[in-house]
């Protein structure tokens, strides 16, 4: 399996505050990688560096590199819109746009210039099917997305991310606002998605990391302490700090 994203000596500062310290890691494609660690450890910051979401914060300074398909995404000639099309993102709270279910999913493709109705129909259906929500919404595509339940809204947001045919989907605690049943549906969905996509997910739920991820990265105070196969890390972690954190004796 080849690596789709690699970061080398990645450092990030918020003003004077260093939030990431020399992060070097390779993320294999078509796998699920969980980023874990206590609040403020840098895991969400790291996630956001992968599609340059941190560019939106003026005081952020970045050194080192993040390569997506062997190209440094912090190079000057990078098209950020194109990068964010290929590396999509799903947030903690479902954030559907106040428009119809159909328009939510068609939004991305339209901004990328697709106007043909038949083509859009096809894209919307495929994305909703991939996000395992098609059967629930196919008869009300023109209704407002805000009428969906929280779990459905989150799957709609995943469909919206998939509609622009990304290769990588970044997820920032995508189930933390959902009930157990919706959580379990999203987890099943994430595991199906890895056939086609690379998933990188920030989670505070250790059991979720164990259940769904192939690889886990443990962050602490801006350092990447340990990266490896999830099964191995949760049965026999190499670093004492990882052991203390995942067994709940440190945090």
């Amino acid at each position: 399996m080849s690596n789709i994203i690699t970061s080398k000596d990645l450092c990030l500062w918020y003003g004077d505050n260093q939030a990431l310290k020399n992060i070097t890691v390779d993320i294999p494609e078509k796998s699920i990688t969980a980023l874990i660690g206590p609040s403020g450890c840098g895991k969400s910051t790291f996630l956001k560096t992968l599609n340059r979401m941190n560019d939106l914060i003026p005081i952020v300074r970045i050194e080192g590199e993040v390569c997506y398909e062997n190209k440094n995404i912090y190079d000057k000639d990078i098209d950020i819109n194109e990068l964010r099309r290929e590396v999509g993102m799903v947030f903690q709270k479902p954030n559907p746009f106040p428009m119809s279910i159909y328009d939510n999913v068609a939004y991305g493709p339209r901004t990328h210039g697709i106007t043909n109705k038949a083509k859009l129909d096809e894209i919307v259906e495929k994305a909703l099917r991939d996000a395992a929500i098609w059967d629930e919404v196919k008869d009300r595509l023109r209704k407002s997305a805000l009428g969906l339940s929280g779990g459905q809204q989150q799957r709609l947001c995943i469909a919206r991310a998939l509609a622009v045919e990304p290769k990588v989907v970044l997820m920032d605690e995508p189930t933390s606002a959902l009930d157990p049943i919706s959580t379990s549906r999203i987890e099943d969905l994430i595991m199906q998605l890895k056939e086609k996509y690379t998933i990188i997910i920030v989670t505070h739920n250790m059991q979720q990391a164990v259940r769904i991820s192939d690889y886990t990265a443990f962050f602490l105070l801006g350092d990447l302490i340990e990266f490896g196969e999830t099964d191995k890390m949760f049965s026999n972690p190499k670093d004492k700090r990882t052991e203390d954190y995942i067994t709940g004796r440190f945090g």
Binding site: V210, F234, T247
Partner: peptide, 9 residues
Amino acid sequence: QQPVAKDLR
């Protein structure tokens, strides 16, 4: 407790 690591072992 859903133990992991040494606790699980």
